[in-house]
Write a protein that binds this DNA or RNA. Structure first.
Length: 575
DNA sequence: GCCGTTTTCGGCCCGACTGTTTTCAGTCG
């Protein structure tokens, strides 16, 4: 059991406690413990084994006992009891926007609603409107929230799919008779949300039956949907479907290309083949006149045969990649190793779980040469935003730390709230003391497009602002972003020399990859930032890079690939 | 449930918004 598992169960316990109507502070203690556990730098199993878990700030006697029980037995009594007491469907109700623990408790107790389906039915029967504390509008809003959820029902966030898929591929690769195995489909194309996991493997026909046997009998499966010698489908415990296809070595590159897609990309590929009197499908590239097929050892061979430079999977959306490949003008996509600065990282000063020094250690181990601390600003009171005097304290701390560091720099940043009128919540003097300012919207999200756009434009015109944070505020599969005229924002950012964030949190991935290309074309630099609230979250930078690549970004388009001296220059140029 | 202490209880994050009410509870960030 790892820290993420423990964190998840602690957080679920917190939600269940709230639903039960327990002391909200008790619930918060569990939620907080979950967060703290996820941020532990040492292995949780080791910390528990050493008896050090109770020494961790935020974990007292009871939680130390509960966590120890969980780590050693895989179960936690408090959690088990709560799950026995409350219908499992109540948990999913908490994912609906506008519905918190109090209201869920009310509809459960007064209307007997135990899951989303029953809630929808109750709304349609107009039973919520007559419930005390509820009304017509709330009922309508809940129906909209359910509809939004329905729309995203079968999709999953990139990092969840990635983790599950990598695990499955590792299992398949353990078999010595497997020549190749990799993830195909939308995950290979770095799409931000994924429906199914597609895995392709090549193995001799004689070995396929036993490989499939092994695949469908893994313990992590919820159900086996289909099982055959060339294709099996399974449903994972996390609700995802995963397909494994096994082919022979000769077919493998064609199948990999076909099952990676996108559908639109494949259509163009087949058309190009046809122009060359060839036929492309998942089994090969066949000659239409004469016989036989064009032998391709790998995907680059296929592209070459069609007169194209090799197109990386993440660009295969039929969004300009063919024209570029034909002219041999494909971008040299940014790589994780190009990133030198870890920007937009929260510390214990606001709502992060690690200290600056801990974050420095982690960032260095990830090959970074600078860290941009960005806690919340003062109006984000919910997140422990920093009033001016605490900002100055943090600056002193950063100076102290920098004095001890060699070959690494901590930069003084802030994630400054953009107020509804577009102003920032510190005065100009304080703002000018930061090395850089990320300006983000966190409140009053319901705006017309015009309001949102003007609010953002005014914010980035503030000369202190270097980076516009998560520009649409979207939460993938959960909340649409505010409507904003991104073209106008990008144009203004280009004029001013302000960078735009590609927030690498797998829940945001905002700026959307489709707009990265637009920003790049206008010369707007993109800052790929993890928006990390712990040292572990900094690994999300990988996801940000994956999406940046999908958005055609090259190292030169990404602000934090610059060495620190050039980074400083780039962000102070606007004075 | 955790923490800190003027140590064994009292406070714990808070301001804005929404939709309900007719002064405020619930939710959100």
């Amino acid at each position: 059991m790892d820290a993420q598992d423990v964190g998840r169960i602690l957080e679920e316990t917190a939600v269940l406690l709230e639903l039960k109507g327990e002391n909200p502070f008790k619930a918060r203690a569990y939620a907080n413990a979950g967060r703290v556990v996820r941020g532990l730098l040492d292995d949780i199993n080791q910390v528990v084994a050493d008896g050090r878990i109770g020494d961790v700030q935020g974990i007292g006697k009871t939680l130390a006992h509960d966590i120890t029980e969980l780590v050693t037995t895989g179960k936690m009594t408090v959690h088990e009891e709560l799950r026995r007491l409350l219908p499992a469907g109540l948990l999913e109700l908490t994912t609906l926007s506008g519905l918190g623990p109090k209201r869920i408790k009310a509809i459960y107790e007064k209307l007997g609603v135990t899951n989303v389906g029953e809630l929808e039915y109750a709304c349609r029967e107009n039973r919520l409107a007559s419930l005390e504390g509820f009304g017509e509008k709330t009922q309508q809003n809940l129906l909209s929230a359910i509809a939004l959820r329905e729309k995203h029902r079968e999709r999953h966030l990139y990092h969840h799919a990635r983790e599950a898929a990598d695990g499955l591929v590792a299992v398949v690769r353990q078999r010595p008779d497997i020549a190749c195995a990799e993830v195909a489909g939308s995950l290979r194309r770095h799409c931000e949300t994924i429906r199914d996991i597609d895995i392709l493997a090549s193995a001799p026909a004689s070995a396929r039956k036993s490989i499939m046997e092994m695949f469908v009998s893994q313990p992590e499966l919820e159900a086996v949907v289909a099982r055959g010698e060339t294709k099996s489908s399974v449903r994972l415990r996390n609700g995802m479907n995963a397909d494994l296809r096994i082919l022979d070595d000769v077919e493998y590159p064609y199948a990999l290309n076909y099952f990676t897609g996108s559908k639109e990309h494949n259509t163009v590929m087949r058309a190009r083949a046809k122009e060359r009197r060839l036929k492309l499908n998942e089994y090969g590239l066949f000659r239409l006149d004469g016989e036989g097929c064009v032998a391709c050892r790998d995907e680059p061979d296929i592209y070459r045969a069609l007169g194209l430079a090799y197109i990386p999977p993440e660009l295969r959306e039929d969004m300009g990649e063919f024209e570029a490949a034909q002219r041999d003008a494909l971008p040299h996509l940014v790589e994780r190793g190009d990133i030198r600065g870890m920007l937009h990282v929260h510390t214990t000063a606001s709502d992060g779980v690690n200290s600056i020094e801990e974050l420095v250690t982690a960032a260095r181990s990830m090959g970074m040469s600078y860290l941009g601390v960005c806690d919340h600003s003062q109006s984000a009171a919910y997140a422990g935003g920093l009033p001016p005097e605490r900002v100055r304290q943090q600056w002193e701390e950063i100076d102290r730390i920098n004095g001890k560091l060699d070959g690494f720099v901590v930069l003084k940043g802030i994630e400054s709230d953009i107020r509804p009128d577009g102003s920032l919540d510190y005065d100009g003097e304080l703002l000018s003391g930061f090395d850089f300012v990320v300006a983000s919207i966190h409140s009053k999200l319901k705006m017309t497009e015009q309001e949102a756009t003007e609010r953002i434009l005014r914010a980035i015109r503030n000369p202190a602002v270097s980076i516009l944070g998560h520009p649409t505020g979207r939460l993938l599969l959960a909340r649409e972003g505010y409507p904003v005229d991104l073209r106008a924002v990008i144009d203004e950012a280009a004029r001013l020399g302000v960078a735009i964030e590609l927030n690498a949190s797998p829940h945001r991935l905002d700026l959307d990859w489709t707009w990265c290309k637009v920003a790049k074309a206008k010369g707007v630099k993109i800052a790929i930032c993890p928006d990390a609230h712990s040292a572990a979250d900094m690994r999300d930078i990988d996801i940000g890079v994956a999406l940046g690549r999908k958005g055609w970004l090259e190292a030169g388009d990404v602000l934090n690939t610059l060495p620190v001296s050039e980074f400083r220059e780039a962000i102070t140029r606007r004075g």
